[in-house]
Amino acid sequence: MDLPLIVIRRMAIGVVTVLVVSLLVFAGTELLPGDVAQAILGPGATPESIANIRARLGLDQAAHIRYMHWFGNLLHGDMGTSLVSGREISVLIAERSSNTFLLAGVTALVAVPLSVLLGLIASTRPNGRIDKTISAITLTLISIPDFLVAVILVSIFSVQLGWLPALSTIRPDSNFLELARMLVLPVTALSFTVIAHMARMTRTAVLNELTSPAIEMAILKGVPKSRLLLVHALSNAIAPIVNVIALNLAYLISGVVVIETLFNINGLGKLMVDAVTTRDIPLVQGCAMLFCAVYVLLNLFADTISIVANPRIRHPK
């Protein structure tokens, strides 16, 4: 099959994924216990006022009609308005996403090169002393929940030593130095989790290549060790490495609720958690769809790279 055709097909799968997720998100929020009208009006509301609100919000219509309405608006970029604040959801999300993207971006910049490097180093001498040390450390870090890591970091660097702030409430007027100081701890805590995963996967992927006959051949034809690793092994291990990186980046965007809450960063995760507690259904749905889009896009990107990196597809017979 031709390269463009494969990529287009992959994109189509992405679109279908978004569609299915939108159904699941909508159905999931339908199942949430409690009634929005009740939540808005409080315990003293009369049945009439509740019915009024329900009619105003369109909650009295059948579910599939509401879904069509909601998804149709979503396609136009209209995510609706927040039930609690009455503000446009797209504006709310835009405000918060800059913080999340900053946190995720800085973490990615630190974690991705570091984990690929650690994975490569570990794979040069499998089961050697360095490999075992890296394995032990990454395994330990992956096993400790991120909130515990964060709490430990805070208690050491903020409480005991007082070097860094315990809260990272990013304001528009924060200057670069403040920003940097605020980001150190959350970025470190997040990095620990993702580095462990990415480094281990890189090690496995490269090691898999290093035991192939092609690498033995490269050794026997006199290729120096560094080139062996960086050109011969890595060029074949790109696909699995890119895929695990994409998965972790998606996690950084959508799964950092705990870290955001702990450090009081006003990001998307925190926005969603707040929306859930206030039964702000449209906002929950909006956040969920954004996370879904990020996942789909990043995985699409990773798959496209793996497809392009495969010479069998790039240059068919």
Partner: peptide
Amino acid sequence: SSQIQQKRGSDIAYIAQSAAAAFNRAL
């Protein structure tokens, strides 16, 4: 090991059993 790596490819050369497996498929 680095001295001997210098010999390989120039003074000593090797032809493996399965060329299909021995060539790097990405280059």
